[in-house]
Amino acid sequence: MVREHIDTIDSLLARYVAGTLPTPARVLVEAHLELKPKNRIKVANLESMAGLELMDIDPVPLSNRDAMLAAVLGSSAPEVSGRDAGGSERVFPKALYDFVGFDADDVPWRTRMPGFKEYDIGEIEGCHVNLFWIKPGRTVPAHTHEGSEISLVLDGAFSDARGHYGRGDISVADDSVDHRPNADMGRPCIGLAVMDAPLKLTGSFRQLIGDIIG
C-alpha cells in the first residue's frame, strides 16, 4: 500500500512482518490478529522465514547485548482482549481502540446516505482512513477502486460477489474488483477501511438510486 501494491491478505501480512506498512494498515492488521488469533501462526511462520534469511547475513556485534536481552526477557505479553473501564468487552480491538481513542458506541458518525454512516479519520501517511457503518440488509452502491483498499470487519458482516466477511475478516480490493457489499441482516456492519486512492462508482444511475433509497 502506497509504496507497493497489495492484492492479497498474504502480501499484506508479509509487509506487516517486514515492517513496511503505513501506520493505519499496521493497526488494521494488528486488530485483525487480535480477532483472528489463528492467523498469528501464519505471521509467526513469516517471521521465521525472515529470520532464516537474516542468518545468511554476517552478524553485527551488539554493544548493549545484555541490556537488550534483559528488556526482552522482562517484557510482558501484549494485551489482546480489550475491555472498557467497567470491564465490559469492547467492540474495537485494543490496537484500534488505542489508535482512535474510543469504542464503537462513541464513534461520531456522519450519515452519507440512508443506511450508511461514516467517520472520516483523515489522511495518515498517504492513506485515507475511515470507519463505516452499514444498516442491516443495506447494499452499498457498486464501486471499484483507483488503488488499494483494505477493510476489516469489526462487527456484523457483509457479502459481495467474492464471499462473506464476518468479524475479524479482511477484504482486499483494487481496480480489478467491482463490487456491491451487502450487510447481513440482524445487526449493523461496522468496519475500518484504509485506502491509498479514491473509490469510483460504477453502477447505473437507476441502480445507484435504488441502493440509496433502499
Rank of each mutant, 00 (worst) to 15 (best):
G122K: 01
D98T: 09
R110G: 06
F99T: 09
E123H: 05
D103L: 00
M113I: 03
D120T: 13
G122Q: 04
L131I: 08
F102A: 00
K117M: 15
W109G: 05
D105G: 12
G122I: 02
K135S: 03
E125V: 03
D105F: 12
F116Q: 13
N130H: 14
K117H: 11
W133L: 08
R112Y: 14
F99H: 10
T111N: 11
P114T: 07
I121E: 05
V100T: 07
P108K: 11
I121V: 12
P114V: 12
R112S: 12
R112M: 15
C127A: 08
W133Q: 02
F132G: 05
D120P: 06
V107K: 06
W109D: 03
E123N: 09
I134Q: 10
F116K: 10
W109A: 03
K135Q: 10
Y119A: 04
I121H: 04
P136H: 11
H128K: 14
C127E: 08
F99R: 05
D98P: 03
G101C: 03
V107R: 06
W109T: 00
G115H: 00
P136R: 05
T111V: 12
F116Y: 15
G126E: 06
H128D: 12
P114F: 13
V100M: 11
D106N: 14
W133S: 02
D120M: 13
P136Y: 10
I121W: 09
K135V: 00
T111M: 11
N130F: 13
W133F: 09
A104P: 01
D120C: 07
G101A: 05
I121R: 00
D105R: 15
F102V: 00
F102I: 00
L131W: 03
V107E: 09
G122W: 08
G101H: 08
D98H: 07
R110E: 15
V100D: 07
D106G: 04
V107T: 07
D120K: 11
C127P: 02
K135H: 09
I124Q: 07
G126L: 06
P136D: 06
P136S: 10
W133K: 01
P136Q: 10
C127V: 02
R110S: 15
A104H: 03
W109E: 04
G126S: 04
D105S: 15
Y119H: 15
L131Y: 05
N130Q: 13
W133Y: 12
V107W: 07
V100G: 05
Y119V: 00
W109M: 06
F132W: 14
G101Q: 09
P114N: 06
D106L: 11
E118C: 13
C127F: 07
E123Q: 07
T111S: 11
F102D: 01
V107Y: 11
G137Y: 02
D120L: 15
T111G: 02
R110N: 14
I134A: 04
P136C: 09
A104C: 02
D98Q: 13
V129Q: 05
G101R: 04
R112C: 11
Y119Q: 09
H128C: 08
E118F: 08
F102M: 10
C127K: 08
E125K: 04
